[in-house]
Design a protein around this nucleic acid. Structure first.
Lengths: 260, 260
DNA sequence: TAAGTATGCATTGCATGCAATGCATGTCAA
DNA sequence: TTGACATGCATTGCATGCAATGCATACTTA
């Protein structure tokens, strides 16, 4: 389809741009709508083909592994060579990361997004409210009998795992277990959009969490707060769950120290 | 546009697309860290060069204008021809839209995301909480004297404009004014991450808002609810503002009817 | 030595070629 | 007429070429 089919006067499209010209021939397919999505909203990350997506996942992994220093510049050429693909899929993956705010536009390409203290504060404010909502919704579902007992039990076990890891002073395992718990709560809320938003926020903070658990004072308090949240959910007490979650994240925000 | 490449003065896409010079900024840094200017978080939409971004903005515009039917399929070839660019920037833009959930992966490419009633419900639950937080933060800032009087007055005027448009039974203007008001509140919250998240949610609902204001019952109530929110903000009463905002969005959610 | 300037090169951004894929349509047989 | 099958073609996905851009370094000059 090179440029051969482009009409010469097709180029100037006025800013309002309200004409759909592409409905010409093939846009609408025999009246059939393709809205057959299966709700792959949150964590749709997997089950997608193509190396562009593979690059995206790989980069994402490296990010949460803290493999790149905040502020570090990434060149698509280097990434392409590193991952053994051409620049096109790399470019596409970077575009998504850009849209998600995990990388920012730098002088010449992109750089790994860093968090200023002020940004961190804002993020934690948002996160506190989102997690409060998640806990609230989870508790509500529990009260309405929409939560499987196994799911609730899993929350308790997740809390246990965090406790063990924290006590073992294993920052990496702690962060992982902690994230798993919060993820589970997010899932228990049963709202895919909320879940998706939470993931965005967590990803943005990712590196932080590791550093957070170094604080012994904070480490001592974390399990109690986790238990309070899960207790609220188990009891179906939306208000209690909300407040516990909010308090927890706010405490986490106060414990936050930038990873310099 | 065969093999000649793009002509110097071609007008590929209807977007200003001013070049910004990073030179000044990055020359100062000159070290390895380009992490300073992470500011472009909320509404970073503009002030970015390149036709890929232009395509993204153009598509986004069309989406919120309801120019594409939900479920309608989009082919990158057609879009490229329509916008007068090659497939590469189109592909990149679509990637971002995909990441934002505004389009979904279809059988052969992507389709405009539709909202099932259940999804809409979830979306409004999230939105209610987010806007509640925004109102709360705005009120808090007002109480702390961080909000310019002009900004607060602007909120009132925005409410007025919605009222006028609704009374004039102009759905399109109503939707626009309504969005402007909510945007202003979001901005007054002073949290770029919250603002960004709100934008995502609004965009996902965009089409809905237009249809919403058709309901006369709802149209009658909307101004009072708006006033309650702004009154709470003006008074610096975080709690009142939060509750008013939450109630407002919940009411909007109930008034929601899918746009068939 | 420090400041200003010119130049080379790394890197991006876009266009396009080529191959793989799978949907849709037309054809043939029961 | 209806079903299955085969074929063609639209469309995507990836790689690569080419030109533009601006950073960094070396060089010149005061």
């Amino acid at each position: 389809m090179g440029g051969s089919g482009v009409t010469p006067d097709a180029c100037p499209v006025p800013v309002p741009a309200r004409r759909i010209r592409f409905a010409d021939v093939s846009a609408i397919i025999s009246g059939r709508l393709y809205a057959e999505y299966t709700g792959h909203m949150a964590i749709s990350s997997d089950s997608q083909p193509g190396s562009a997506h593979a690059v995206y996942v790989a980069l994402r992994h490296r990010f949460s592994d803290g493999e790149y220093a905040p502020g570090q510049r990434l060149t698509e050429t280097a990434l392409a060579a590193d991952l053994g693909v051409s620049r096109t899929p790399v470019r596409e993956a970077i575009g998504r990361l850009l849209a998600e705010g995990l990388v920012v536009q730098a002088a010449r390409g992109v750089a790994v997004a860093a968090l200023t203290p002020k940004e961190a504060k804002h993020l934690f404010v948002l996160r506190a409210d989102l997690e409060a909502l998640a806990a609230e919704l989870a508790a509500t579902r529990q009260a309405q009998g929409q939560l499987a007992p196994a799911e609730v039990d899993a929350l308790d076990r997740a809390v246990d795992r965090v406790e063990v890891a924290v006590k073992a002073q294993d920052p990496r395992a702690s962060a992982q277990a902690n994230l798993a718990l919060h993820r589970a709560i997010g899932a228990a809320a049963g709202n895919p959009f909320l879940e998706d938003t939470l993931h965005r926020v967590w990803d943005r903070i990712a590196v932080t969490t590791v550093a957070n658990l170094d604080d012994p004072h904070w480490a001592a308090a974390i399990t109690d707060q986790h238990r309070a949240i899960v207790a609220g959910i188990r009891a179906g007490d939306a208000k209690a769950a909300r407040h516990a979650a909010k308090a927890h994240i706010e405490a986490a925000g106060r414990a936050y120290r930038p990873v310099v």
